[in-house]
Every structure is written in structure tokens, then in C-alpha cells.
Simulated scan of single mutants.
Amino acid sequence: MTSVSIPRRMKGVQIKNFGDAEVLQYKTDLPVGVPGHGEVLVKNEFIGINYVDVYWRRGMMGIPPNGIIGREAEGTVVSTGAGDVNSLKVGDRVVWLAMGGYAEYTIVPASLAYPVPADIKPGVAAAALLQGLFAMSLSHKIVQVKEGNWALVHAAAGGVGLWLCQLLKALGAKTIGTASTAEKMKLAVENGADYVINYEEEKDLVKTIEEVTGGYGVDVVYDGIGKDQTQNNVNVVAKHGTIVTYGAASGFPAPISHATLTAKNIRFVGPAESALMRNIGGGFEKWCAKLFDTIANDKINVVIHDTYSLSEIVRAHKDLEARKTTGKVLAKP
């Protein structure tokens, strides 16, 4: 096992109870672990904050190991365990997708850590990984969007939303986004949306989308909002179209009857089916290579809302839940 000088204690955030943002406890004396077989220890430099972390904090996703949530981070390998560690070595800059990101150090399976390309600026890999991979799986695998397709992206100025707008543009699709403020609408347009609707002000979203599409509707709906848009999604999706739900910011989507789906031959993909790891499976390395190639070749704009101190994690979560953020939220230990 190769290693460098590593402290015994670290900064991090733990939850001992589920609930609102106040259950997130910032600590400075958490133990630093030792990587086991096939694992590496990463000193995190940029930590990705995602809405799924809110679900973990509320107890909707199970109990996180050691009470530490956070699915991704970017940092430096400082120790490697025994066995196959995918040729990773001490000093390598990596981005990883696992669990335990709200900490200064994280033990990660080597199979879920990827070397960051040299031309990627600090922080961008952490900002791109989960949301970028997720958006790619939604637009390239779960639904294979084709040139000329109509797509509706709810929360188009959010982290996944901005990625979808850009990826759909690169695929030649026509994208309608929804957002809640003029600032967010502008950001969505700047990042590939062809039309954007203010869902806070628009009284008849369905009618507006029908007018934009000439009565056709949309081939695919990407919905990370949930309950509030369930009926609108059914009404605007075209015959043989697909509704993809991947989040529940407003609550879980209301059940859609079999009769409703079959009336237009609608395909419905729920959160369990749209889950990232379910769709990239054991192809993490391949998908990461594709992600960073896409950033370079399609000139993807990785939008970072702000970088908080990890000690400000309560404020970061409150801003995220209040929909005060656009793009990616990061933290530094």
C-alpha cells in the first residue's frame, strides 16, 4: 500500500437524524479511514452538492454510511489500498462517484474514480460528473433523442436542466424549457433552449406548448419537479412519446393510470428506472470518457452557481431547496 502523510482527523458533515437542513452537523474531528482492497483514499478539493442529497438528508434514500452523505467530489489520491486500483496512484487528480462526499477525505472504490483530464479546470469535474452523466443517460440511453424531436425540460436552469438543454441542442432537438424567473429563463436560452416558459406566471402551460409546437406536443418530457407537473406532462406529450421523471422537488408524481398512458401510447419512465447507476452500470469509465469528450467537443458550458465552504452546508441546502440556485452547487472542505 502506497501512502503519504495523512491526518487522523478531518473536517466533514454528519447527520444523526433525518429532517430539515439543520440536521447537517459540521464537525472537525471525524476519523480518516484507511482504504481497503480495491479502494483509494481521496483528499477532496471540490464537493458536488446535488438535490438527491436533500432526499438522503430527509431519509428517503436509506441510511448513509457513517452518517456522511454526498455522491461526488474531485480531489487527489493520497493513499491506495491493496489489490487492483485501476492503475491509480498517489498524486493522481480524480473525480469520483460513490458516497461520503461531505468530508475532507473519502474512501472510494477505485472502479468509481476517474482521472481528471489535464485540460479540465479545477472544480469543473466535480461540477460536471453526476449531473452531466445523468443528463447524458437521459438523452442518449433512456430516450435516444433524434434530430428534430421536440423536448420539454422542466427546471431548465437547474443543474441537470442546463446540461439537458445543451446536449439536446447538440443532438439537433428543439427544446422548450420551463423556469421560474426571468434570470433563469435567460440562462436556459443562453445554454441551448429554443423556447422558455415562466411556469410561475404562465396560466396555461399546455396551451402555450401546443402553440409553440403547432399542436404536435413534445416527443419527450424531462421532469425533475414531480407532482406539480404530472398532469401537464400527460397533456403535452405527443402520441408514442415518453415522460421521464427523475426527481421530486415538489413531491412524488401522482400516479398515472394505465388507461391514460395507453390512450396515447405513452411510455413512462419513473425515478427508479431513470437512476444513474442503473443505466451506466459497470461502464463508469466509458461514460466518464464520453462526458469529458462531450465537454471539449460540444463546448459544454458547465455552469457553477457558487462554491460554499463545507461549514456553510446548511445554507447551501436551504438555497438549493428554495430554488435560489442555477447550475451546479459546489463546496470546499
Rank of each mutant, 00 (worst) to 15 (best):
I295D: 05
F268R: 07
F292D: 12
G283L: 08
C288M: 12
K264H: 01
A275V: 00
A275T: 07
I300P: 01
N297I: 07
G282M: 00
K286M: 06
D223A: 07
V269L: 00
V302F: 15
D228N: 14
L291Q: 07
N232V: 14
T213D: 04
N301K: 15
G215M: 03
G247F: 03
V218R: 01
F292W: 12
A248I: 08
H240N: 15
T213R: 00
E211R: 13
V220M: 09
A259I: 05
R278T: 09
I300V: 13
K239S: 08
T262P: 02
G251W: 11
Y216L: 00
K286E: 06
N265E: 12
H258I: 06
V269S: 02
G270D: 11
G217A: 02
V244W: 01
I266Q: 03
A263W: 08
E285Q: 15
E285I: 03
D228R: 14
E211I: 14
L261C: 04
S309M: 07
N297H: 10
K286H: 03
H305T: 04
N301M: 11
I225C: 07
P253G: 10
N301S: 14
V237P: 02
T262N: 08
Q229F: 15
G283W: 03
V269M: 06
D219R: 09
F252C: 07
I300Q: 03
Q231P: 05
F268E: 10
H258V: 11
T307D: 08
M277C: 01
I266S: 02
G282Y: 02
Y216W: 13
S250V: 14
I280G: 04
G283P: 01
K264N: 09
N235F: 05
I295G: 09
Y222N: 06
I243D: 02
E210F: 09
G282C: 07
V221M: 02
H240R: 15
I280D: 01
K299C: 10
Y216N: 07
L310R: 15
G224C: 11
P271A: 11
K286T: 10
W287I: 02
W287M: 13
I266R: 01
A272H: 03
F284S: 06
T245K: 05
I300M: 11
N301A: 12
G215L: 12
Y222K: 05
T230R: 03
K286S: 06
L310S: 12
V302G: 15
Q229M: 14
I266C: 03
G251H: 13
T307R: 08
T307G: 10
D293E: 15
Q231I: 11
F284T: 07
K239V: 05
K290H: 04
